[in-house]
Design a binder for these strands. Structure first.
Length: 101
DNA sequence: TCTTTACTCAAGG
DNA sequence: CCTTGAGTAAAGA
């Protein structure tokens, strides 16, 4: 059962274009809320294949967690494959952060 | 840079 | 009601 909040989060996350990444903060902002943590909670609770959770990272440029593990190598590698440049496990937010309108 | 603390809110117990 | 969580920001060391 998905809540309204989760639907919003998933919807936005699905809109993330390839080669781009989004931060939890941006998503929360797009939802007009401050529930940064709730965003992450919603993503982890919804193993929706259509949702590229791996494109959602922390505002500090780190990938944060994925599949319940911090700095998941898979996530990093996948992002890198997407075309995201990285600096010692950190992503260039300035270039690859996608902003919602 | 790292750690601690405070803030915040949804979900689960 | 209390704890947890895929966070963020500010402050201190």
């Amino acid at each position: 059962m998905l809540t309204k909040f989760e639907v919003k989060v998933l919807n936005l996350t699905k809109k993330i274009p390839k080669g781009k990444v989004t931060t939890y903060k941006e998503i929360a902002k797009a939802l007009n809320t401050k529930a940064y943590r709730a965003v992450g909670t919603a993503l982890k609770k919804n193993p929706y294949a259509k949702v590229p959770c791996h494109r959602v990272i922390n505002s500090n440029g780190k990938v944060g967690s994925y599949k319940g593990k911090p700095n998941s190598k898979e996530k990093i590698r996948l992002l890198k494959k997407e075309g995201i440049e990285m600096k010692n496990n950190k992503i260039n937010l300035k270039k690859f952060t996608f902003s919602f309108s």
